[in-house]
Amino acid sequence: MSVDATTVRRIAHLARIAVSDEEVAPLQGELNAILAFVEQLSEVDVDGVEPMTSVTPMAMKKRADVVTDGGHARDIVFNAPETEDHYFLVPKVVE
């Protein structure tokens, strides 16, 4: 499988990465090189094989239902580019 320029733009938009017109062709080439490389996986017989979900067999750890965190809004927004009254600010979102 290989990607065309339209697909490159579609993926870039899905990934929220702006790409200029000049970037599309090189990206397309690189992505297709990678896709060509991984193509060899199609020769492996994977019938009846379970896809890996966890590399180490163990039970998932769980937390008790207690409040152990919160109460530090100032820290939470400390690194934010734009804030007001401990809110994060973003360009207006229209519904």
Binding site: I11, L27, L35, L41, S42, V44, V49
Partner: peptide
């Protein structure tokens, strides 16, 4: 990084997920 994000986005996207991601995870099992 952009290249890997884009490849990753592509292999997870509708219609390609099984052919790429699921197959790769099966190969990981092998």
């Amino acid at each position: 990084v952009k290249r890997r994000i884009m490849i990753g986005t592509y292999v997870l996207s509708a219609g390609y997920y099984d052919a790429y991601y699921v197959r790769a995870q099966k190969i990981r099992t092998l």
